[in-house]
Structure formats: structure tokens, C-alpha cells
Design a protein around this nucleic acid. Sequence first.
DNA 1: GCAACAGTGACACAACTGTGTTAATGTTTG
DNA 2: CAAACATTAACACAGTTGTGTCACTGTTGC
Lengths: 115, 115
Amino acid sequence: MEELTVGRAATRTGWSARMLRYLELEALVVPRRTESGYRVYDLRELNQLRALRELRRRFRVELREVAFAARLRREPELRAVVETWLAGADAAPESGATPAWVEWEQRKHERLIAA
Amino acid sequence: MEELTVGRAATRTGWSARMLRYLELEALVVPRRTESGYRVYDLRELNQLRALRELRRRFRVELREVAFAARLRREPELRAVVETWLAGADAAPESGATPAWVEWEQRKHERLIAA
DNA sequence: GCAACAGTGACACAACTGTGTTAATGTTTG
DNA sequence: CAAACATTAACACAGTTGTGTCACTGTTGC
């Protein structure tokens, strides 16, 4: 009893039908299909759609940024490398002579980045 | 003895000087400055630059995607909401009647998304 | 059976990203 | 002190994102 077609799902969630199709293309919200190919939005997808809207509104997040977060979740190796990079990037810059973290950094990156 | 100005840092890391300035603007690699305002790239920044290049090459990651990952790290609330969204988005769609996760989903989103 | 939907595909367009280049000015160095 | 760098600011430009609209065709509901 909560099976909406694209137009109704759109007005119900505040998107346009066009955008629902786009979100499917971007693999962000993928509805199932009827036999004849119509998109079917269940409660699950409606929730995703509303939540995604709030995400954008409250945090000014772009769709492709959410898509990238999804990619990070699907590709653990990528996630590891990105996190390593970020850790290196915001480690507080030391002032002491020959900070030990420098070589540590170097080896870490060599290990992780090595083809 | 590893204090390069922007031009040398560029040729040393495979970027253009222009791009090093852009990366600073985007807060991805921020060098310190001399008294007179010249950018100074130390080993730390050189490592970041090389690693960033490899990230892009190997995983086809965009700069702004890395910037977003950095933002996720800086804003834990945002990270929580995004992760919740993703979790809801790739929970395997059940086939049983009135899946329990639906209401769970709903309350979770209400809690997290509530203004 | 026809109006009101749905499907895909295409064209359009503003805004943004990433990048080069050029100009006008300041700094470092042989 | 002049050459070779650096600084910022601006203009330019192709590619991408997000979005609307329009055309043509297929499906559904009354």
C-alpha cells in the first residue's frame, strides 16, 4: 500500500520526476521496476529520498559527494588510502628538528601507494 | 634543506605552480609562508602532493572528492548522517511482509535528521 | 478507447572545477 | 641591478553536475 510511481513519489518527497530518474542513473536511489518497466518507489526509497533532501538542505552536500561517500564504502582500498592521506594532511606540523613522523609518513605512503 | 618555493615544488612533484596555488585555495595542501609571503613547501607538503597525485591517477578521484572526505573528517555530525544514509541505502531490500527494518529506518532518520 | 500517466532520449543551460595564461607588481640572487 | 623568480588578480575555456523541457512512444485507469 506504499507503492508509488515516479510522479507521485516525486510530489510526495519534494523532488521532480526528472530528478528521481537522475538519482537512479547516479545509483543513489534505485527503485525496483514493474513488469512493464515502471519505477516503483516503496517506503524504503521514499525514506531515502526525503533523507537525501534533508542532507542537502542542512549540510549543503552535493549529490556527487554523497555518491563519492558511497564509493568509499564500496571500495575499502580506496577508503584506506584516502584516510591515510587525510591523516598525513592534518597531522599538526611539528617544529622540532627532524620530526620522526616524517620518515614514518614516507614509508607509510610508499607502502600504501606502491603500485 | 628541503624547503622549496612553489616553482621547484611543482616540478619536483609533477604539478604546475598554478595548481599548487589552487590546492592551497582548496585547503588541500597548505604550505607555510616566508616573511615576505612566499610559499614554502617542506617534505611534509611534498609528500602530500605526490600522494595526492597518485590518488588521482590510481583511483580517478577528483580533488573536490578528497576535499569532501576532509570535510567528513572535520564534521562528525555530517559524517554520522551520511553514514546512516548510506547504511539505509544499501541494506538489502527484504521480501518478507512488513520488514521490521522499515520502522527502524524511519525512527533512525527522524532522530538524526530532526532539525 | 482515450486522457493521463509512464518510459527513453535529446537539447539546453547555468554554475562549478580544474587548468592555462597573461598582466602588473614585489622579492631574491648571481 | 638585472634576471629569474615570487605574489595576486583576472580572463578564458572545456568538461561536469544538476535541472528543466520537449518529442516520441508505451502503459494504465476510468
